[in-house]
């Protein structure tokens, strides 16, 4: 797992974490007993779908001879 997550562990860490994580995995494993045959998964709780900004025309800087005039990016020095 550590390799997959691009983490380098010392031997000592590996031993400690595997013991600790085993306990956690065992604990979260209790979900296997819940009846979920009739439920759909929840990815998010906002109820929002297809969020996009309003498609509105906003004023542009004045055109000069058909070109958009912007501030200089590079200085003279």
């Amino acid at each position: 797992m550590a390799k997959l997550a691009k983490l380098q562990l010392t031997d000592e860490e590996e031993k400690k974490y595997s013991q600790q994580l085993e306990k956690v995995i065992e604990y979260v494993g209790q979900l296997q007993k819940v009846d979920i045959s009739k439920v759909k998964g929840t990815n998010q709780v906002t109820g929002l779908v297809n969020v996009s900004r309003a498609d509105r025309v906003s004023p542009c800087t004045p055109l000069v001879e058909g070109y958009i005039k912007v501030k200089a990016i590079f200085g003279n020095d």
Binding site: M1, K6, E13, L21
Partner: peptide
């Protein structure tokens, strides 16, 4: 990534798993 502390490492591995 070697600078992650113990708890971050545990959660990263748990999530990766």
């Amino acid at each position: 990534r070697s600078n992650f502390g113990a708890e971050a490492k545990r959660r990263i591995m748990l999530g990766t798993y």
